[in-house]
């Protein structure tokens, strides 16, 4: 048995006195695609933000590729280089061109020379189907294009894991599919993926496992067929009927 890509054991997280994540236990295998869903405030974003230390957990263990996430800054930076993240609001750097957005971290954090980094960046920009935008600024692109740049930017670091935090929630409806297409392609190539999303079609198509969270706990997890067709928990059923029912 190889070591899991992500291992979380007895993990708790508090905001002041608010108990945001309660006793999270989760293992994600290499190459596995996991979709996390749940009502707002259920802690799903907090959970994946704990995986790359954008949020600090208070007790328990988080390991990424066997590297423990503790106060050691080198470990944190190592994990962040291995786990790319895509945000709801894209968070592209507005003062840099698309190409500069994509080459900055490889050049600075991976010490790759600029020429090679630009070549890699252009390859990934071609893959997300916007190579012609390389010299534009993020402000000149549509939301869907910006999110595809954000995915390319994360991929340029050659991560082994990709974390998606509601990547389509801030997009206009007609732009959602162009981003999901890129994510599906990524999944088909065997990337380990953790996605917080409400795109249930996407979950059905690519997920190996769907996790339902509520009030800071993992309530139910199952393969998509079983999860959608035969949910075990009452709250899962209520949630599914709410998001599918309209």
């Amino acid at each position: 048995m190889t070591e899991p890509a992500i291992r979380i054991a007895s993990m708790h997280k508090y905001y002041g006195s608010f108990h945001a994540l309660k006793d999270i236990n989760l293992e994600i295998a290499k190459g596995e695609k996991v979709v996390i869903c749940g009502p707002s405030g259920s802690g799903k974003s907090t959970l994946i933000r704990c995986i790359n230390r954008l949020e600090e957990h208070h007790s328990g263990v988080i390991e990424v590729n066997g590297t423990p996430l503790d106060d050691n800054v080198d470990n944190i930076d190592e994990i962040r280089r291995e786990a790319g993240m895509v945000f709801q609001n894209f968070n592209l750097f507005p003062h840099m061109t698309v190409l500069e957005n994509c080459t900055l971290a490889p050049v600075l954090a991976r010490k790759i020379d600029r020429g090679a980094a630009e070549e890699t960046a252009m390859r990934y920009l071609a893959r997300v189907k916007i190579p012609e935008q390389a010299h534009k600024y993020p402000g000149e692109l549509s939301g869907g294009q910006q999110q595809r740049v954000a995915i390319a930017r994360a991929l340029c670091m050659a991560p082994e894991i990709m974390l998606f935090d509601e990547p389509t929630s801030a997009l206009d409806p007609e732009m959602i599919s162009e981003v999901l297409d890129v994510m599906v392609g990524l999944a088909e190539e065997g990337m380990t993926m953790v996605c917080v999303t409400h795109e249930m079609g996407f979950a059905r198509q690519v997920a190996d496992r769907v996790i339902f969270m509520a009030e800071g706990q993992i309530i139910e997890q199952a393969p998509p067929d079983q999860f959608f067709d035969n949910p075990q928990n009452e709250r899962t059923r209520t949630f599914l009927s709410q998001i599918v029912g309209h």
């Binding site: 790359n52 230390r53 954008l54 800054v73 930076d77 190592e78 962040r80 280089r81 786990a83 790319g84 993240m85 945000f87 609001n89 968070n91 592209l92 750097f93 507005p94 003062h95 900055l104 971290a105 600075l108 954090a109 991976r110 954000a150 930017r153 994360a154 670091m157 974390l163």
Partner: peptide
């Protein structure tokens, strides 16, 4: 806040974040 978070998530260290992302903006 997303600017610094994105820089962190890319594995950029403190001085790189300050020098390339935070201060220029």
């Amino acid at each position: 806040a997303g600017q610094e978070e994105a820089a962190k998530a890319l594995g950029l260290g403190y001085w790189h974040r300050i020098g390339y992302i935070i201060l220029p903006q």
